[in-house]
Write a protein that binds this DNA or RNA. Structure first.
Lengths: 189, 189
DNA sequence: ACCTGAACACCGTTCAAGT
DNA sequence: ACCTGAACACCGTTCAAGT
């Protein structure tokens, strides 16, 4: 129950903030108000602190978002995927979609540069592995994964769309399967 | 050669700005500095005017972007597409991709709501029609178009990606064809 | 070491006034 | 009718100072 700000033998002022506390508060703002309201200034207010205090625990806003996404992904339970390779690709892509759907701000963070976290590698690797088991060469598998990833990003980014009806989960799955099957059958061509 | 600000019989102060002039200046900023520098304030400076003068000719920044994209699309020459339906789908998607690649800020405008311009309908319709000619039902064709559109948006949004090598035009085409063939063959399933 | 306050260089937009 | 200036309510970030 040793609180960090009472730890003895440390020089200087005891910290009032911590990376942990900042991330918790940021997640709260994200949940309660949405990503468009998460600013360094808003976050400082949430913590009854000043914007600049944050910069002592986090390099900049981009790093903060990266850390938030990282923590979010880490909280996700690792589902066990089906044995059949094709089903595994579909399930993996579906999982990736679901993760990002619950975390719309994350798409932007991932789509932009900088994010090099390894906390989501398992799912990427699981998809690529399954693609190889489906018969694709490693190079083709990576590329096929890339196409799948682009479709997911597009699906999540191009939200409203001209057809005002959001597609049902079933429709989405059919679309996803079509894309995956197309990528798989290109191998044999 | 009748300049609008000398047109007789009009009441009030002659206009110094016009929607046309604003769009031209905005396009110049876009070309020379990039979309991230196009602000109402920057644009007003470009026109030696004040930010608020712009709001007399344009409802807000979103409308400005919409008008810019509209003008951009209108300038594109209408290519003639191949006869074979499948090739037509591929060519249409390719064209859509190329248009947006030269116009990265447009992706965001299109991905967000509001844009209801009809200046790009011809290309969308051409793709949907070709999909129907390929044997898809009208409903399936619209949905297939949606999937293709999402892939394009994703491809353009998820720019850098973990594989640091940007795919070649050939690779991209292969990916696109795989997606399209997947969508087409789902029909017969 | 950790935090504060003021400042810099921006945003989009509203409101009241000027010609 | 068209434009201006000041103001509102924001941004992310740097810099110098305080304890």
């Amino acid at each position: 129950m040793q609180s960090p700000n009472t730890r003895p033998g440390r020089l200087g002022r005891p910290p009032r903030l911590s990376r942990e506390a900042i991330l918790v508060a940021a997640q709260r703002v994200l949940d309660e108000e949405g990503a468009e309201y998460l600013s360094m200034r808003r976050l400082a207010r949430e913590l009854s602190s000043t914007p600049m205090a944050l910069y002592h625990h986090v390099r900049d806003k981009d790093e903060l978002l990266m850390l938030l996404l990282d923590a979010y992904v880490r909280r996700i339970p690792r589902p066990d995927f089906p044995d059949h390779p094709r089903e595994r690709v579909v399930a993996g892509a579906q999982a990736l979609h679901d993760i990002l759907e619950d975390c719309p701000w994350g798409v932007e963070v991932l789509a932009s540069d900088r994010f090099v976290s390894t906390s989501a590698t398992w799912i990427v690797e699981s998809i690529v592995d399954a693609l190889v088991l489906c018969g694709l060469s490693p190079g083709d598998a990576v590329y096929a994964y890339r196409v799948i990833w682009c479709c997911l990003v597009g699906e999540l980014t191009a939200r409203p769309f001209r057809a005002r009806t959001t597609p049902s989960a079933d429709e989405r799955r059919r679309g996803l399967e079509a894309v995956i099957d197309g990528l798989l059958s290109q191998n044999t061509a």
